[in-house]
Design a binder for these strands. Structure first.
Length: 611
DNA sequence: CGACCTT
């Protein structure tokens, strides 16, 4: 531990100041006031001075120069020797002298990193128990599974992407990356079951970015000037998760010429339309807003080569399935086989796998053993609490947590409740009682949601009351305690919720309030805790035994406790004389070995590897 | 059932 929190905060403040200065300097050379207005249909032109009347067609990455030279698109070459945060007066791609200057300047996502976060992470990563990697079981099924890799260097991702991987401080691929990336680069469809944030975002982004850079330049049609044709689509169930994926994807695609745009509801559509018009290769979106864009014919999926669904089981459950089917099957997206489809989730119930197989073609199923929930990292507790006692009980927990604060800052506590009204009420009550709390749920405005999340992450409001909108995928470092004030009705949701803590090798605590309203969860909860080597209270076991009938629909198929899911296609239909376990060939020698050597996982890939 | 998803 080199530095204290205070030092880190001071350091990052300094860093911020200097990067702010840099930004100011580079802006000064590009005064916005001198920028001429450019009508939308003329924007995004590579060389306006020489080509300003050419029709607006794309070849290669949307934001790169018009032509792809050789194997890689050109922007990469200009930056091979460039250093991270410097200001590039030569511009991005070939735009140096253009009217697009400033407007299309690619913000350096590494210079703008959130002040405190990376520093904390770096510090705390020194405490990662890398040995835990050794024990993670991996299972792959399907035909001709490409073997896993042990290093990023083994994979030909391209220099620009490799540089971003270094900037992210990723030293080694996480288990899901080791397996998923070669599968995707092998142009195979994939259903991957791995804890949220186990580096999944990178696992699907790297092959997409690399594929777009390497791919044959495509001429995108221009049905109307205003219709855009992304090459990749990433869907996620919540706005905040889409934002998070977008942020990560921007880091990975920095200076590759590959353009990432995000679109979600609750925010003015006009800015998103402008972003799209400036060119889009990878579109990250929530379903509702995307349908809107498709119906307005502002986006066409005709050129989609890659489709990724994050939290795919959620995307395909009752609430979302119709929208997803509409987007994937009833618009103009190429069918399975003509595109590459990647589905990721921490949990993959059998019946959802069956649904999902509609979207896939000859896919490989990949399961990376439960990480967070199956190790000792998360201390799971269940307490019997009557509804009427929940608030005072929570108060007790929060008082205890307060004592555990670090450097005067209270450790972060995430409190899950069942309903939006319940969230508001509890937030209000907590504030009244001297606990600085905020809340996030679907009845709040998008501004409020984002503000709440930021305020929580920064420690400003160390208690966040949330509905399931925050249960999945969100990467919130430093959550010390997850309280299931109201238990969910689905054990998979419980798994996702508690996964917000116990990150980066740090211990996390998850406390659930159980009472007679939750008897349908008793069995699944007891089983899960048992599986995770947690102490199951005797009273809970009695509930579990009693309610074995309805059993809280234990949707997790396959009795094997090592995985969140098994391939629903089953071993029988896919057994291939010793060929289905390719991973064992790659791993047999305890192949995660070198993790202990470098601590350096500063980025989200490692940060969230223990989600 | 509620949660999430365009206006």
């Amino acid at each position: 531990m080199r530095t204290s929190w205070a030092d880190l905060a001071a350091n990052s403040a300094t860093d911020n100041a200097s990067s702010a200065n840099n930004a100011a300097t580079s802006n000064a050379s590009d005064p916005p006031s001198r920028m001429a207005y450019v009508p939308p249909h003329l924007r995004n032109r590579p060389l306006p001075s020489t080509e300003s009347v050419a029709p607006r067609t794309y070849s290669g990455p949307a934001s790169g120069s018009g032509a792809v030279i050789g194997k890689w698109s050109t922007p990469r070459n200009e930056y091979r020797s460039g250093t991270g945060g410097s200001s590039h007066t030569s511009g991005w791609g070939n735009k140096s002298g253009g009217w697009d200057r400033g407007r299309d300047y690619e913000v350096n996502p590494f210079a703008n990193q959130d002040d405190t976060e990376p520093k904390f992470t770096e510090q705390e990563n020194t405490g990662i128990n890398f040995d835990a990697y050794e024990d993670i079981p991996v299972e792959t099924t399907g035909e001709n599974v490409p073997p896993p890799v042990n290093t990023f260097a083994e994979i030909d991702l391209g220099e620009a992407l490799n540089q971003n991987i270094r900037r992210c401080k990723y030293v080694r691929p996480t288990p899901v990356q080791r397996h998923a990336i070669p599968i995707s680069l092998g142009e195979r469809d994939l259903m991957a079951c791995a804890q949220t944030g186990s580096g999944k975002t990178a696992a699907f982004c790297f092959p997409i970015i690399s594929g777009i850079m390497k791919g044959q330049p495509v001429e995108r049609p221009h049905r109307g000037v205003r219709t855009v044709y992304p090459l990749a689509l990433v869907l996620s169930p919540t706005r905040e998760l889409s934002m998070q994926i977008h942020e990560e994807a921007k880091k990975f695609s920095y200076q590759t010429g590959v353009r990432v745009v995000v679109a979600y509801g609750g925010a003015p559509i006009n800015q998103q339309l402008r972003d799209l018009e400036r060119g889009v290769d990878i579109l990250v979106a929530t379903p509702g807003r995307l349908v809107d864009l498709l119906e307005r014919a502002r986006v066409s999926l005709q050129m989609i080569r890659y489709l990724a669904l994050d939290e795919a089981d959620r995307m395909l459950d009752m609430g979302f399935e119709p929208q997803i089917r509409k987007i994937v099957e009833q618009m103009d997206m190429p069918p399975p086989g003509a595109r590459q489809t990647m589905l990721f989730s921490a949990t993959f119930p059998r019946e959802i796998q069956r649904l999902a197989s509609d979207f896939l073609s000859n896919y490989i199923f990949l399961a990376v053993g439960r990480v967070g929930s199956s190790t000792d990292l998360i201390d799971q507790r269940v307490e019997y609490v009557l509804e009427s006692d929940k608030r005072s009980h929570l108060m007790d927990l929060l008082h205890a947590q307060r004592a555990n604060g670090v450097q005067g800052k209270q450790a972060l506590t995430l409190v899950f409740v069942e309903t939006k009204k319940g969230a508001d009420a509890l937030e209000h009550w907590l504030c009244l009682n001297g606990f600085p709390a905020t809340s996030i749920h679907g009845d709040r405005t998008q501004q409020e949601r984002e503000f709440a999340l930021r305020s929580f992450k920064s420690g400003n409001t160390p208690i966040l009351v949330a509905t399931d909108v925050a249960a999945r995928g969100l990467d919130i470092p430093h959550v010390a305690h997850v309280v299931n004030f109201d238990l969910p009705n689905d054990i998979d949701d419980y798994v996702h919720r508690i996964g917000r803590t116990g990150r980066a090798g740090k211990k996390g605590l998850a406390t659930a309030f159980f009472n007679d309203n939750n008897t349908n969860m008793a069995r699944a909860l007891a089983d899960l805790m048992q599986e995770a080597n947690q102490e199951v209270p005797a009273w809970l076991s009695r509930y579990a035994a009693r309610s074995s009938f309805g059993g809280g629909r234990n949707r997790r198929s396959g009795g094997g406790g090592r995985f969140g899911s098994r391939d629903f296609r089953g071993e029988g239909s896919f057994s291939r004389g010793g060929g289905s376990d390719y991973h064992s060939a790659g791993n047999s020698g305890g192949g995660y070995g070198a993790y202990g050597a470098g601590y350096g996982g500063g980025g989200p890939g490692v940060t969230s590897a223990w989600d």
